[in-house]
Design a binder for these strands. Structure first.
Length: 882
RNA sequence: GGGAGCUUAGCUCAGUUGGUUUAGAGCGUCUGCCUUACAAGCAGAGGGUCGGGGGUUCGACUCCCUCAGCUCCCACCA
């Protein structure tokens, strides 16, 4: 077979992915083996692949492929999330572009459009994951709005309602005026925002609704809400305002009389010390309103516009109203001054709209019991967070959690199974039929058409928190006599979860709650939290900045293996990763290196009669030991989720140890065959390396594994056993390293003296230098090694040290004596300074007595080694100066 | 405002109970090579007073205090 000098991924990737699918290598069924389970963090059903997905799913795939090769029954369940608010927004926008307003549609009509959209765009991301090589069990693909998964969600709602955890009530919620829905506290992002601080004059009423000439000044950032003021509040301790007690003031522009009240909530030092109380539009004001029985005047509608209760500026958007009322207040003489002011403002995570605190009827889930247990799961170490710094964050959140607002004023999602009777009472049942039956027990006259289902749907996370359970068994929640089915019993709890820290609370914490509640067990053992992918300037990737490359373009250009390696190279857990295309080039280069190593090996002709050269024998022995040593390190890295370290260890092992050392040693001379022993060992080593690399770079390793010998139909590298470490002789490995350093020393001399690698040199070592590895030095260094008691006249060559071994290369006529003297003097100076620090330690009684014996012995060895080096350098120096 | 974390070579990061660390790696840089696997390569080299200051210790990149800078999370000061 003719192989090109460069690896071409496009020839192999689709071919092997198809092969894997055809043979159902990704598919898992319960059996007697130990399971290893991962559920995918379900991407938005209409989402497209971005760099964050690439990082996350590559990590997942590495873990699942490694587990599969370790002999476990590996199951990676893929799927998508219906993402209610995000998807509904997309559908609304698309309809709007076609001239259709959501308001003009019925719920059923809208949902029809939404499902059409989902059918058309849904799941694109899953096909993109295939390009990446993700070994998901596609037969198990799930969607959070699959009928059975939805049923599980509804049953969960009913379950918690019956348990008394779900309640309905009017509360101040975070209203998203663009999404037209309430959102949970977790979906509000506070950002410091520059706004204005308006100082307004509220005139004191004469008692008959007429202004006197006295006024107080109230500072506010929201002058458009003054019409909703219910009172003005002062601190009872504030002597400046004692004269106000019992008086009334007039709201500017509308001249409405409101009382002065006192509450210690008001900070005397902040603003003017007078607070306008607007219960309908501020959470704190609402609390004050409750304490003082103030009326709630809601002047802002679903869209963030002023309604008729505002009396003025009716129909204006809240920000437009703010702009206009400023002028009106100024004109009316009520505006004292305006200051620039920066304060935190809440924004909707999904729509980026400024959140409007608003009173509305919502459904809530009580969190305290659930949170307590979920905290315990992490505190006890049953669930491990990696890196563990997130435990602090997690604890803080769990100890301060508030009830979860689970209703959303949307249509796309699971509809709340509450059914209202004409009198306003409601029943909560899993189906309309059950609801009707339940309703008739209360009122036998209820007709089907009298029963109206709640209009709201449930928060998306109310379905995804069941994900590790519901992907296996959707009947689980709410069935008292239910027994976990075979899949759930086998695969649950899952093993590892890889996800971003941004959804630690949204998703991870709540899955732990659901797991504890329904399975009486944690949903996963390890949570590996990745960083956020940023560009090389450290900026978040975003569409508007245009700094986010399309992963598919990268795969097209460099190959999936290169993209995977590039992403992993710099991705320690929990740290943000700075993406740079150079890393992916590095991945591509590595592919090419592997490819060319194969080209070299596969071109060798085995010569059955040839004896194994001494150097090859040493190389084979060393590499076998080294393989075991490296495997030990790799397993250690994997066990600690240090994926990039594991990868780098393998990368260097392949490139430096295998290619630069091993292959260069065993490589037969041009047109010469290779002996059978070395050929077979090399082939085994190469196969072991391919297996080690496979979890990270599945395509090229399959391609080469299939090419290296005849494989039976249906065989694959992905089901081979990952190599395991055997015993090794660390002393021999160390000895080999000395040989490699000697080679580097010789090469360094060649470089300095401009001597061709083709010219064979003499290398003298002292007697006592380890002899086993000499053939390697001779081959790689192109030298003839001889061991002598003394080097003779070293002035006609170059001496150098490898560790404590002195070496000499005769180079008649090529030595610049002055240069050599300077070099040796530098060595002596350095060593003398070094030995001084060592001796300082050794002469310190406290050190000698206090430090462990091993440490003291080491210092003594340092001293001896250093002395030997000085002595050798001095001897050479003396020879040069003769 | 509260909390967590970070600061080690030009860049990105390791450094795992304070002692084989005389601080490592990858990339980049510099020098020499078109050597018949690979120039997406080979060989060699240079590069850091571990953010500043103080302390504990026989010994500190590692522990404590302090200052500075950066990042993230949480939060209703109008």
């Amino acid at each position: 077979m003719e192989l090109s000098a460069k690896y071409n991924p496009s020839n192999t990737e689709d071919k092997w992915y198809k092969y894997w699918l055809e043979h159902k290598f990704f598919h898992s069924e319960p059996d007697e083996r130990e399971p290893y389970t991962i559920v995918i963090p379900p991407p938005n059903v209409t989402g497209i692949l971005h760099m964050g997905h690439v990082l996350n799913n590559t990590l997942n795939d590495v873990l699942i492929r490694k587990a599969r090769m370790d002999g476990k029954n590996a199951c990676w369940v893929p799927g998508t999330d219906h993402a209610s608010i995000a998807t509904e927004n997309k559908v609304v926008a698309k309809l709007k572009a076609e001239g259709i307003e959501k308001e003009s549609l019925t719920r059923e009509e809208f949902l029809k459009y939404a499902w059409e959209w989902k059918e058309k765009h849904g799941g694109i991301i899953l096909s993109q994951l295939r390009k990446l090589g993700a070994s998901c069990d596609w037969d198990r693909t799930k969607f959070t709005m699959d009928p059975d998964l939805s049923e599980a969600v509804i049953n969960t709602f009913v379950y918690f309602y019956r348990k008394g955890y779900i309640y309905r009530g009017v509360r101040m919620v975070n209203w998203d005026p663009v999404g037209h829905t309430a959102v949970s506290d977790e979906e509000v992002i506070h950002k410091d925002t520059v706004s204005k601080f308006y100082h307004l004059r509220y005139f004191i009423s004469d008692g008959n609704g007429k202004p006197t000439d006295k006024y107080i000044i109230i500072a506010t950032t929201r002058p458009e809400t003054i019409m909703a003021d219910a009172a003005v509040c002062i601190n009872p301790e504030d002597e400046r305002y004692h004269w106000l007690k019992g008086k009334k003031v007039l709201i500017p522009l509308i001249n409405k009389e409101i009382p002065i009240i006192e509450d210690s909530y008001v900070e005397m030092g902040f603003g003017t010390g007078c607070l306008k109380v607007t219960p309908a539009h501020d959470v704190n004001d609402y609390e004050i309103g409750l304490r003082h029985h103030l009326p709630v005047i809601d002047i802002i509608d679903d869209h963030g516009r002023l309604n008729e209760k505002a009396l003025i500026l009716v129909g204006e958007d809240r920000f437009e109203a703010r702009r206009k009322i400023e002028g009106m207040l100024l004109e009316a003489g009520n505006l004292e001054k305006v200051e620039d002011y920066t304060s935190p403002v809440g924004y909707s995570e999904r729509t980026n709209a400024v959140i409007e605190p608003r009173l509305s009827m919502q459904w809530f889930l009580k969190m305290d019991d659930l949170a307590r247990e979920a905290l315990e799961s992490v505190e006890s170490g049953k669930v491990r967070l990696i890196p563990d710094k997130y435990r602090n964050t997690y604890r803080h959140w769990m100890e301060n959690v508030k009830d979860w607002c689970i209703s959303r004023q949307l249509w796309w999602g699971q509809r709340i199974p509450a059914y209202y009777m004409p009198d306003g009472n409601f029943v909560v049942e899993p189906s309309f039929e059950a609801a009707l039956e339940a309703a008739r027990k209360i009122n036998p006259d209820i007709a089907a058409e009298d029963l109206k289902q709640d209009e709201d749907v449930l928060d998306t996370w109310f379905s995804s928190w069941l994900w590790p359970i519901s992907v296996f068994d959707t009947e689980m929640p709410g069935h008292p006599e239910h027994r976990p089915n075979r899949d759930l019993a086998y695969y649950y709890p899952t093993s590892d979860l890889v996800t971003g820290p941004d959804i630690l609370f949204f998703w991870v914490a709540r899955m732990i709650m659901a797991g504890n509640e329904f399975m009486k067990d944690i949903p996963f053992r390890n949570v590996y939290l990745t960083g956020i992918v940023r560009d090389k300037l450290g900026r978040k990737m975003s569409k508007t900045l245009g700094n986010s490359p399309d992963p598919l373009d990268l795969i097209e250009k460099y190959g999936a293996d290169a993209v995977r390696l590039g992403m992993l190279l710099c991705s320690s857990a929990g740290n943000d990763i700075l993406y740079d295309e150079a890393q992916i080039e590095q991945g591509r280069n590595f592919c090419n290196k592997i490819w060319n190593a194969f080209r070299l090996i596969s071109g060798w002709k085995t010569d059955g009669d040839a004896a194994q050269p001494a150097a090859s024998a040493v190389a084979v022995k060393w590499f076998g030991f080294k393989l075991s040593q490296v495997l030990e390190q790799v397993e250690d890295h994997f066990s600690k989720f240090r994926i990039s370290d594991a990868l780098m260890t393998i990368y260097k092992f392949f490139w430096d140890d295998f290619c630069s050392l091993y292959l260069e040693i065993v490589k037969p001379a041009y047109n010469t065959g290779i002996d059978r022993q070395t050929a077979e060992a090399t082939s085994e080593f190469f196969e072991a390396l391919l297996k080690m690399i496979h979890p990270v770079m599945p395509f090229i390793t399959e391609e080469l594994w299939q090419s290296m010998s005849e494989r039976k139909a249906g065989e694959t590298i992905m089901l081979q056993r990952y190599p395991t470490a055997g015993k090794y002789d660390a002393g021999f490995i160390a000895e080999f390293e000395i040989a490699a350093e000697a080679v580097a020393g010789v090469r360094n001399i060649r470089q300095q003296k401009n001597i061709s690698p083709k010219e064979t040199l003499e290398l003298h070592v002292r007697e006592g230098f380890p002899t086993d590895t000499v053939p390697v030095i001779e081959k790689l260094g192109n030298v003839k090694v001889s061991a002598d008691a003394a080097f003779g006249d070293t002035a006609s060559g170059v001496t150098f040290m490898v560790r404590t071994y002195e070496m000499f290369v005769p180079l008649t006529g090529k030595v610049d004596v002055g240069e050599e003297i300077a070099k040796l003097e530098a060595v002596i100076a350095y060593q003398e300074k070094f030995i001084e620090t060592v001796r300082k330690k050794l002469s310190n009684e406290k050190f000698v007595n206090g430090a462990p014996e091993k440490v003291v012995a080491m210092e003594r060895k340092k001293e001896a080694d250093s002395l030997a080096k000085i002595e050798a350098a001095r001897a050479s120096l003396a020879a040069l100066r003769k």
